[in-house]
Design a protein around this nucleic acid. Structure first.
Lengths: 130, 130
DNA sequence: ATTGAAGTTTACGTTAACGTAAATGTTAAA
DNA sequence: TTTAACATTTACGTTAACGTAAACTTCAAT
């Protein structure tokens, strides 16, 4: 039940280099514990954080933006004001994502329109071939 | 009806630098006509291509990938084989976009779940405040 | 005990996507 | 006609996100 990993475990898990993982620590995205000899120890928390990072990167967020989001969900917002700020920020982000979805859907529509025309062209060609 | 633009017209239009536009030409994304003195002339076609470029960038495509897509829709696929290839490629891209949409929607769900918890916490705090 | 794989830090190298500057030509307005 | 704003090419500079290598330590297996 208690799962800990080395740095190359994590690298394999996410299919990246150890350098990449160390780099993320270098810029403050991760802060894994160390054992007696200074070896990094990764647990469930770091695993989740890395998932967040790679998902974020996939959608064009810079590591700097991702850092903001991680820090946000990292420090538990105990104070009322902090909690409010967190909620506000979160709602803005949700709004951004919502818009991204809409734009992607319109992009998809355009592409399918294009495809439709091409398919029609192909069908015409096939017909005249006979 | 016939609309032509200078490079800084385009730069203003898309709110980027002229260097950016020249760079896109440098790597083969654009090939505007030139006038007598070598000045670049931009028309409707380039306008559309630039829209494609910036939309692509917005969703994390590299300029290299974008180049592929532009070249694809640039040369008209007159030959049957070329037409087929174009359709295949297009369908793959549509598939990619579809998956992106799905993942973004699940991301949105997660974020909203998070937000829900935070909001509940805040509500509790407000209550105990009384 | 030795060897090889994996860990550490430090530090320089690389690529994409431009920024910036120099040197020069063109155009529009005063 | 001169001046300011805009155009051109050439070329070096910059930043993010790692790659790569050196010099060293630690661990696991033979």
């Amino acid at each position: 039940m208690n799962n800990f990993y080395s740095i190359s475990d994590m690298a394999d898990m996410f299919n990246v280099s150890t350098r990449t993982i160390r780099y993320y620590e270098e810029i403050g995205l991760l802060k894994p514990e160390r054992n007696q000899n200074g070896y990094r120890i990764y647990g469930k928390k770091e695993k989740i954080q890395l998932q967040l990072i790679f998902r974020g990167k996939k959608y064009g967020f810079s590591l700097d933006e991702i850092k903001d989001m991680i820090l946000l969900f990292d420090e538990d917002p105990t104070g009322r004001e902090q909690l409010k700020k967190t909620i506000e920020y979160g709602e803005r982000k949700v709004q951004e994502v919502t818009q991204s979805i809409e734009e992607l859907m319109s992009l998809k529509n355009e592409m399918e329109k294009f495809l439709g025309e091409f398919k029609k062209m192909l069908a015409d060609l096939e017909e005249n071939k006979v």
